[in-house]
Amino acid sequence: MSLPAPDAPELAQAPGAPQGPASLWVLYLAFNRLALQGFGGVLAVAQRELVERLGWLSREEFVETLAIAQVLPGPNVVNLSLMIGDRYFGLRGAFAALAGMFVLPSLLVLSMAALYGSVAQHPVVGNALRGMGAVSAGLILATGLKLLPAVHRNSMGPVLAAVLAVATVVAVVWLRVPLPWLVLMLGGLGMAAAWHGLAQTAERA
């Protein structure tokens, strides 16, 4: 008597690999929690929630998925939610993650926008917003520093990745290169370098 074959997801799940959400409801609640914490920018919270707390993505997977989300049209974290939802539950997962990002947070933001109109001229409100802007910048910087170790395992290698990062900063801050040209030039160069690195790795294997 032959034993029944294990399910495909169990075969694909390697030991120590990131575990995905157990259900659509869990996926919805996770992105709802993420969005509610992310006033002023969700990126820093997304890395902490999806990689560190939930363990749905490894650090390298998060960096790679975020890179694709940055290139696609639209807000990067919205694109990220769609890709992660689709990865685990297909189209239903994409809609569940998107609903978590937008439904309740949108109601809160609209309510706060209406409230802000009545207190916008108060000096305390202006100072509070400036303080929150500094905190948001610090969170994004801290997230970038946390993700730096993932660069060492990138197919391009840390040196070329650092060169592209510096070139991007120079092009944006000092040269004022428009975003479409920046994506085409440095983005295209990065993709070509990654493709070459992957080909070399495959040859060695």
Rank of each mutant, 00 (worst) to 15 (best):
W56Q: 02
F95P: 01
A96E: 09
T65I: 07
E52P: 01
N79V: 01
L98K: 02
V159I: 13
V170G: 05
A97I: 09
V63Y: 03
L107M: 13
H152E: 00
A99L: 13
A120N: 11
A120Y: 12
N127D: 11
V45F: 10
G126P: 03
M112A: 14
L147G: 00
D86I: 00
V71E: 09
V124Q: 14
R130F: 06
S155F: 11
E64M: 04
A96K: 06
L139T: 02
G93M: 12
L54K: 15
G74E: 12
G126M: 10
V151R: 01
G157H: 08
N127G: 11
M101S: 02
M83T: 06
L160E: 07
V78M: 14
M101W: 04
M112H: 02
E60D: 05
R53M: 04
A161K: 05
P123L: 07
G93D: 11
L115F: 13
F62K: 07
F89V: 03
F89S: 04
L148F: 00
L164W: 04
V109W: 04
V124G: 14
L54G: 01
N76L: 11
A128I: 10
A99H: 04
V71A: 15
L141D: 01
L145Q: 00
G144P: 06
V163T: 12
E61G: 14
G85N: 09
L91T: 09
N79I: 06
I140G: 01
V169H: 09
R153C: 00
F89P: 03
L66G: 00
G133S: 15
R59K: 10
R87L: 12
A120C: 08
L110F: 14
R59F: 00
P105T: 05
V119W: 08
R53C: 01
H122I: 06
A113Q: 10
G90N: 09
A114M: 10
A99I: 04
G90P: 11
A67D: 03
L91I: 09
D86Y: 14
S58M: 05
A134T: 05
V169C: 12
F102S: 06
V109L: 14
G131V: 11
A114R: 13
Y116H: 10
V51A: 08
A162F: 01
M101C: 05
L54C: 08
L91Q: 13
L82D: 00
N154R: 01
L50T: 02
A113H: 06
G126K: 13
R53I: 09
Y88R: 08
L139A: 07
A46F: 08
S111T: 15
A120D: 11
P123H: 08
K146P: 00
V77C: 07
G74L: 14
